[in-house]
Amino acid sequence: MLNYLLRRVLYAIPILLGVNLLTFALFFMVNTPDDMARIHLGAKHVTPEAITRWKTEHGYDKPLFLNDQAPGPGAVTDTLFVEKSLKLFALDFGPADDGRDIAREIKTRMWPSLAIALPTFLVGLLAYLSFALLLVFFRGTALDTAGVVLCVALMSVSGLFYVIGGQYLMGKLWHWFPISGYQPGLEAWKFLLMPVLVSLVAGIGDSARFYRALFVEEIGKDYVRTARAKGLSELRVLFRHVLGNAMIPILTGVVVVIPRLFLGSLIIESFFGIPGLGSYTIDAIQAQDFAIVRSMVFLGSVLYIVGLVLTDLSYTLVDPRVRLE
């Protein structure tokens, strides 16, 4: 177990290095610090001096990967890459390009994100699984066919229409909720419920169909026939045997996203004006704020790797064959 965790941590290092290299390359190979300065300064104020000043102020005045000016090991360490990327390993995010502290922003903004993502995830998982089980219980009947047709139709609608339709119906027509925006404190639920509902409806087609397919595949297996031959009721066969075994592939897709719930949803948050990490990231992308994007990418990767470890751990709970050495 300890060995396993240690190995995962060791394996995470090259992955995170790779992630950093990739984002770094993406931004700086194509977009030099000079370009960034020009964008941030605006067309009117671009002078060579202003660019240099901006770069110094924001810490972009070093070479990218190799500093031939610096002595000794400084040639490698005294560079933008080390300066900007490797500090992330200590979760030192530093200030954003607009000067605000990224870590503080993350701390305040993760709560609204979680407030949407967590209920969506939990209720969604429960609802989708139940719906899929319902279809499977009635498989071969008209109910099953109708359910599958409904799923395919629902998953053929662009998510945008769920958002727009939700806002129009629940916000404008029925006046249930404010169309968008956020307010901390007890009133927050008013703003959170609609995004959660919309996300739930938007996801049902895809997920329920996927789970149904997993169940149907599981039902075709020999051990299910054995369970029936023992005289067990169909419900017991479904819940004890089929669900128990289908949990293994279900967990593969589900557990890995749990840590990422912190990051919120880029799309939902920007649609509904929720000041979470998702909209923070979108704003940063649109403002070309490299410091924030880099931090969020890094955080996303760390959480993904945590998700992979959690997935492995969750296997040990549902599958006795898995042992983490």
Partner: peptide, 12 residues
């Protein structure tokens, strides 16, 4: 049944 490999529920 024929296949003892697959005829038992692997997680029970």
């Amino acid at each position: 049944f024929q296949e003892p490999q697959t005829s038992l529920n692997p997680v029970m």
